[in-house]
Design a protein around this nucleic acid. Structure first.
Length: 775
DNA sequence: GCTCAGGGCATTTTT
DNA sequence: TGCCCTGAGC
């Protein structure tokens, strides 16, 4: 019995079996955190705790699913099914649907994703006649998000002097008004945004103690994964829910807290001991993932950080090879070096492609590596960028679904009222929206009862078109009630003409859009089938409940398995690879080292942790690479390697060849800069680390040859005719691939002579010839 | 109501 | 370099 406990070391074992009272599990990178969490739950179940009394919260669907599967394999599927296990957002969305009456929302409330939020904010800004260059919707959205994460209501915001003066100094004094209006309109639309799911849960618990008590009573055990990433709203929910039984177990690693920009508070984990004086601490310090070299090198980076929970992460694995530093003079060379290393080590040491990951700070950095991998025919996959559920065609179809479930959903209505085109344009929509705002109701309520509103001043033709739209949605609503999710979805896709529309579009983009719709329908079919099998509700409404909370990483394809992974360091958290390249380590990419940015001690420490997270993804080998010079936004930029490279203990490195100099204290470093990064013509000076004569000479020599060849070398993808230059490879719809011989004229009358392999030399007016630029 | 030329702007991201 | 936004013009 309990043989699963045998897999655990002493610290892990303790953390699993001490189930009562508050527990803080400090889990260093690769120390078996997920294992402890799952075994702890399994252990609770074995000891007789009912699954429905266990609340386990994670940050991603993937983490929740994996944990659930592992528990199912230990404790049985029938038990695992009844656990309250999921992401913060999905669990509390579920709770809010049950408790909708108390908070004055419909149970079928829509969940607005960030695009919906932004678009609503944009309309509000326009409606207030504010300039959206000053009031950037994204910035306003993040202010509102910040407020909600800190449980500041619109009212509280308006009377908060600090926030108001901060807004004023950003020249956006009206944010508090926008917040108020945004909050109101979400309610009128029967919609919650992501932050609302936590914010309103907090309001629910604050204003309805009887509801809080019900859940406090229910959850005998509360477990939280990645506790260092919780924001204030999440922190408070957990604290309240666990207050009765006090069986709270949080697992996390302060050294991996890298999400402060989205409201995560490292204080939550640092202060756990104050919140629960009678707590126990379990430290998982043995790293099972990586070589000693990697673990020690990573430790040496965060050693400088002041605020941390003391711990000694160690590895008993092989010492392993030193971390290799690749210093390239240009970004192209960096890409080349990385691809070369992959080819060589892969052949020499028989690795598969899935054993490699390339990690970078920003998504935009992926391009150069894509290119270099493509040149060597190395298969790769990229995470990040446009997610499946964010694609236009998917959002359009989902908006139809949303409208059939919650007709007050203004954002959905605005997307589809004229898609496919039915002659209801922007002017009409503005009129309708104005009336809706005036009457404090949803647009649907206006168009469903147009005569009551004097037809909103519309002409006869338009009224008829709107009437048809209303009928269509009514019909779909009926349909979704009568049939299962798949049948309803399929019929909607057909009847709206979306499917046919995309089917007729034979361009590559149209083809892929059609495929995407098919893929979505397949997913819905799968949902319908499983729901039926498990005896759960199988209506479109039920499918829609969670789809807003899904992301790309929730549907990985099989054919993508054996490929090199390209992703940001942030999204690599929780993953591991045998071989990891941490690339683009220029100082310029780290705000704490960028001139003109205010670096706080906190942000500097977080960047060290980011670097720590990156390195500890590697099991066997790690590479660190940087380029001293790259094209950024059309300018030649000089970069120094990040200071974090200098902070690494060189005993663990191979190939670091810098003029190390005293880097001074953090404050001095923050004021160091190497010229300007402004847009325009300002160029940077070579960094001081390269000011020895020798390195300067190499630098200059390389630079000259680079400048000479940059024209021919430059390659990119896109179809902006302004970017087309002689020497480029382009693709034409009819003539296929060709080489641009010369360009004359200025836009819009750019003429290009292009040599096509199959069609000979052609003069094209770029205005009419769509050329896709190829790498 | 749609298309296209030109301007302007660029962290990290899960839900 | 890529791409989103907008206003002008059809």
């Amino acid at each position: 019995m309990l043989d699963y406990l045998k897999d655990l070391n002493e610290a892990q074992h303790e953390a699993v079996v001490r189930t009562e009272g508050p527990s803080l599990v400090i889990a260093g990178a690769g120390s078996g955190k997920t294992r402890v969490l799952t075994y702890r739950i399994a252990h609770l179940l074995k000891q007789g705790a009912r699954p429905s009394t266990i609340l386990a919260l994670t940050f991603t669907n993937k983490a929740a699913r994996e944990m659930k599967e592992r528990i199912a394999s230990v404790a049985g599927e029938n038990v695992a099914r009844y656990l309250w296990m999921g992401t913060f957002h999905s669990i509390f969305a579920r709770m809010l649907r049950v408790e909708h009456e108390v908070i004055g929302y419909p149970s079928n409330f829509t969940i607005y994703d960030s695009a919906d939020s932004k678009s609503l904010i944009k309309t509000i800004i326009k409606g207030f006649q504010l300039d959206d260059k000053t009031y950037k919707p994204g910035v306003v959205a993040s202010r509102i998000s910040m407020a909600k994460n800190n449980l500041i209501t619109p009212m509280a915001y308006a009377s908060n002097a600090d926030l108001k003066s901060a807004d004023k100094s950003m020249r956006m004094p009206a944010i508090s008004e926008i917040y108020k209006e945004y909050y109101k309109r979400c309610r009128l639309s029967g919609a919650m945004d992501f932050d609302d799911l936590l914010f309103i849960t907090n309001l629910l618990f604050r204003d309805h103690p009887e509801v809080l008590e019900k859940y406090q009573e229910r959850f005998g055990y509360v477990l939280v994964d990645e506790y260092q990433d919780t924001n204030y709203a999440q922190y408070l929910i957990i604290k309240k829910l666990a207050a009765k039984h006090n069986n709270i177990c949080v697992v996390g690693d302060d050294a991996q807290s890298i999400y402060s920009f989205r409201g995560a508070r490292i204080e939550n984990i640092l202060n756990f001991k104050n919140d629960y004086p009678e707590h126990r601490v379990f430290k998982l310090e043995q790293n099972y993932r990586s070589t000693q070299t990697i673990v020690n090198a990573a430790n040496s980076i965060i050693a400088k950080n002041k605020r941390q929970i003391p711990k000694t992460v160690f590895s008993e694995n092989d010492k392993g090879k030193p971390i290799k530093v690749l210093s390239a003079l240009t970004d192209n060379e960096e890409g080349f070096l990385v691809a070369q290393e992959i080819s060589q080590t892969q052949m020499r040491d028989h690795y598969q492609f899935l054993d490699y990951a390339i990690l970078y700070r920003t998504n935009a950095q992926s391009r150069i590596f894509e290119e270099s991998l493509r040149k060597r025919n190395i298969p790769y996959k990229i995470y990040g960028g446009l997610s499946f559920y964010q694609r236009k065609e998917i959002k359009d179809l989902l908006s139809y679904f949303r409208m059939t479930i919650n007709r007050d959903d203004n954002e959905a209505l605005k997307r589809i009222i004229n898609y496919p085109a039915r002659g209801i344009g922007a002017t009409t929509l503005t009129k309708l929206e104005t009336v809706a705002v005036e009457k404090e109701t949803s647009i649907w309520n206006i168009i469903a009862a147009l005569p009551d509103y004097n037809y909103a001043g519309l002409n006869k033709g338009t009224i008829a078109k709107i009437y048809n739209f209303v009928i269509l949605i009514e019909r779909f609503s009926q349909l979704t009630k009568e049939t299962d999710a798949f049948e309803a979805a399929k019929r909607i896709a057909e009847h709206t003409g979306i499917l046919k529309d995309l089917y007729n579009d034979k361009s590559p983009e149209g083809l892929s859009r059609h495929e995407n719709i098919q893929e979505l329908l397949n997913g819905i079919q799968e949902f319908s089938i499983t729901a039926k099998e498990q005896g759960e509700p199988d209506k479109l409404e039920n499918y829609l409940e969670n789809v807003a909370l899904l992301t790309d990483q929730d549907n990985e394809k099989d054919e993508d398995r054996n490929k090199v992974t390209l992703m940001t360091v942030h999204s690599a958290k929780g993953l591991e690879f045998k071989n990891v390249f941490v690339v683009g380590l220029e100082e310029d990419l780290f705000p704490s080292q960028r001139q003109g940015e205010k670096a706080t001690l906190e942000s500097l420490e977080e960047e060290r942790r980011l670097f720590y997270v990156a390195i500890t993804r590697a099991r066997e080998n790690a590479w660190l690479s940087y380029a001293n010079q790259r094209y950024r936004w059309g300018n030649l930029d000089f970069c120094a390697p990040s200071r974090f490279l200098n902070e690494l203990d060189e005993n663990y490195l191979e190939g670091l060849n810098l003029n190390k100099q005293d880097s001074g204290n953090d404050d001095q470093q923050n004021r160091l800069g190497y010229g300007q990064t402004t847009q325009g013509f300002a160029h940077r000076q070579p960094p001081s680390a390269f000011k020895t004569r020798e390195s300067q000479n190499i630098f200059n020599k390389k630079l000259v040859s680079l400048k000479e060849s940059s024209q021919a070398k430059s390659s990119f993808e896109g179809d902006d005719p302004r970017r087309i230059q002689a020497g480029m490879t382009v693709e034409h719809q009819r003539f296929g691939e060709g080489k641009v011989l010369n360009i004359e004229g200025v836009a819009p009358n750019l003429k290009a002579t292009v040599f096509f392999q199959n069609a000979g030399q052609k003069q094209l007016l770029l205005k009419f010839a769509k050329l896709k630029i190829k790498g």
